[in-house]
């Protein structure tokens, strides 16, 4: 097996007096779904934002296929092959589903600064192919502003795939979705990860989603990693039971 797609070593981040991320190291491999879990305030979001370039680390480094990401803006990280979905979906509400994906493709092919040929006639087939992959082909003409929440997540996924990424970062992918939608979205993600040999790192609150779909799970508490392993190992880990699962009634 080759080296990890994403590798973080010794990440630290402080906010004022709070050590939000304390010496976190992790690696994600191609074809793998890695879940990052932990109670609220454990530092998951901060850790996630250190990986995607939204925040700069105080110490430590993040590498994508061996290449350091320090100091790169989110848009530069995207160009290196990192696709993202957000906890609260972010799509272009004034455009149709297909146009959303077309914009991502236009950016990928560096055609933003072109002023003549209508955008609708750029990469229409590629966009339709991506929409077919996420099961949104039949809704391509609908404005994103009127879509159901679960469908917006699918559009986000299609946009994330537009630059043929090596790594998918998904922040609480199923937040705000109905249970049946959750399963469908995670099944879809899983099949894309397998097919395209993507590495996928996601945070999640819904334990059914985590235990049902992650190949490997890492658990954070108070800024540090406290456990790592597959679903059974994490479930059985007493430290995890103490800080997380015990309190939620799951």
């Amino acid at each position: 097996m080759s080296g990890p797609v994403l590798e973080a070593r010794g990440l630290h981040k402080r906010f004022g007096g709070v050590h939000a991320v304390n010496d976190v190291s992790l690696a994600v491999h191609a074809g793998e779904m890695l879940a990052l879990i932990g109670p609220n305030g454990a530092g998951k979001s901060t850790c996630f934002n250190l990986l995607n370039g939204q925040l700069g680390a105080d110490a430590g480094e993040v590498r994508l296929e061996g290449r350091p990401l320090a100091g790169l803006k989110p848009r530069a990280i995207w160009r290196l092959g990192v696709g993202r979905t957000f906890q609260i979906t972010a799509t272009f509400a004034s455009m149709t589903v297909r146009e959303n994906v077309q914009v991502a493709l236009i950016s990928h092919h560096r055609r933003v600064w072109s002023f003549w040929r209508p955008a609708r006639r750029h990469f229409g087939n590629e966009a339709d192919a991506l929409l077919a992959q996420v099961g949104m082909a039949d809704q391509a003409e609908r404005p994103c502003g009127v879509l159901a929440y679960g469908d917006l997540k699918r559009v986000e996924l299609a946009m994330a795939l537009a630059n043929d990424p090596k790594l998918l970062l998904m922040d609480e992918p199923t937040a705000g979705m109905a249970p049946s939608e959750r399963i469908a979205l995670m099944e879809l993600t899983r099949s894309l990860v397998r097919e395209r040999r993507l590495a996928c790192l996601f945070t999640e609150h819904d334990m059914d989603v985590v235990f049902g779909h992650a190949d490997r799970i890492i658990v954070m508490n108070r800024g540090s990693l406290i456990a790592e392993g597959d679903a059974a190992a994490v479930r059985a880990n007493p430290a995890v039971r103490e800080v997380y699962l015990g309190s939620g009634g799951h």
Binding site: F92, M95, E99, W113, F115, R117, A119
Partner: peptide, 19 residues
């Protein structure tokens, strides 16, 4: 044209546009 779409994209969601 693509420029106009990119402009609207930046307006609709800067977060997504950068991503």
């Amino acid at each position: 044209a693509p420029f106009g779409y990119a402009l609207r994209a930046a307006r609709d969601s800067e977060l997504r546009a950068e991503a």
